[in-house]
Amino acid sequence: MTDAVSQEWGVRIRTGCRVSFTLIDLNGETGRRNGMASMALRSPALEAVVLPHHSTIEVEADENGSAHVEAVRGLLERLREAWQGPPAKAVIREGLPPHRGFGSGTMTAVAVGRAYAQLAGVSVGAAEIARAAGRAGTSGASANLIERGGFLVDGGHLNPDDFADDPQRYLVPSRFAGGGKRPPALVSTPFPTWPVLIVIPNGNEMHGEEEREFFARTLPIPAEEARRTAHAVLMNLATSVVESDYTSFCRAVNFITYESYFKQKQIDMQSSEVKFLLEEARRGDEIDAMAMSSEGPMCYAFTRRPQAAVQWLSALRSAGIVHEFWFSGARNVAADIDWVPVLDDGRTVVA
């Protein structure tokens, strides 16, 4: 659009969330570290609009998005300076629940940054935005999924020459790893049309210094355990998704949740309610497979018996184990980015 027209138009971006099956290699002795098996979901969703503004960068957000206002403002100020871009106002209309396991920090930053790039007339991909935001230092899940959707396995990062001297320096959560080269997508494929049952138990929201201290205590994991996880992801989880083999997929998910080394450490940090939920899912007939995303507390499940699963979760909600739950599904497409009209009062008139 021309400069004359662009003052009457903003840019809207809509995308889903990221859920994690597992980080892959948290030992690093092979020369690479991290990597993640992940997927994009339709719900919860993220919607933001970036509008022309008077002279500064401003950011507004709903309750969920408010956790990321300062980080987004800082990102947009850096992008404006780097691109000599226009002043803008970002409005996070529908934010992702923070610190639950939905990848809200990276997804929000990359999404709003992509919208600002279009407003500024800059052709740039999600990887560059993530680097500017200081993200994707652990996995390329969120940056890749915004551009692809679906199921993803990324290859993590090449270790620096001094990795062996102090592995814990580099085996850190994403927000402390800094921005870097986006990890390559090893597997990127649509996820089958299997419903995904999102479950929010009453659990711990681990982030910030608490998460960093957890990584420092736990990593590096034994090399053999990293190999077991990598094998499970590439030879079982990913292949079952590509072949739409539900039974094999559920077997792989349950191995990661209940038998893989690092996931067990993550679950150990969770509340008694989360542990109870996972054990009941394993013992009962209502759920075929259940995963916990990142450090939780959000879990997501797969079932062929939705009515029985809902009845089971309703009882757990009444008992104070579960806060809320709903059915979602994979988002197998990239983020939607489009121009929207801006009225004199700053409102946009699009559904």
Rank of each mutant, 00 (worst) to 15 (best):
D162S: 11
M107N: 03
E29D: 14
E205N: 13
G149W: 12
V241G: 12
I287Q: 03
G178T: 09
L186Q: 13
V241N: 09
H99G: 08
F215G: 12
R131M: 14
V59M: 04
R305K: 15
L278P: 05
D288G: 08
A319H: 14
A133F: 06
E273K: 14
N332R: 07
G95W: 00
G180W: 06
E63P: 02
E8T: 08
F325Q: 13
E94M: 08
K265E: 13
L152Q: 05
W326M: 14
C299I: 06
A90G: 04
A4L: 10
D344A: 15
V340S: 01
A319I: 07
C17E: 02
E128A: 15
G346Y: 01
L145T: 04
H323W: 10
E213F: 02
F21C: 08
V241P: 02
D285M: 03
L46C: 12
S66D: 11
F163Q: 08
A223Y: 05
L41A: 11
V50H: 06
K263G: 13
S55W: 02
Y170S: 06
Q84H: 15
M290K: 02
V172A: 03
D25Q: 07
F176E: 15
V50W: 01
S314V: 14
L51Y: 00
M107D: 07
G103C: 11
Y246C: 11
A120I: 04
E324Y: 09
P183Q: 04
E280F: 01
S294Y: 06
Y258C: 09
Y261I: 09
Y261A: 10
N27Y: 05
G179P: 08
F262D: 00
Q270A: 07
R212G: 07
V333P: 00
M298A: 13
G16M: 07
A71H: 08
V122P: 07
L79P: 05
G125L: 01
P192C: 10
Y261Q: 12
E8G: 15
F215E: 12
D3F: 05
N204W: 00
S328D: 11
Q270M: 06
E211S: 11
S294I: 09
V196H: 03
G346I: 01
P184N: 07
G329P: 10
G203A: 07
A301K: 04
I267E: 13
A120W: 01
I256H: 15
R12V: 03
G178R: 05
N254T: 11
E286W: 15
P52K: 05
G10H: 01
E81Q: 15
E29W: 00
S293A: 10
G113W: 00
L145I: 03
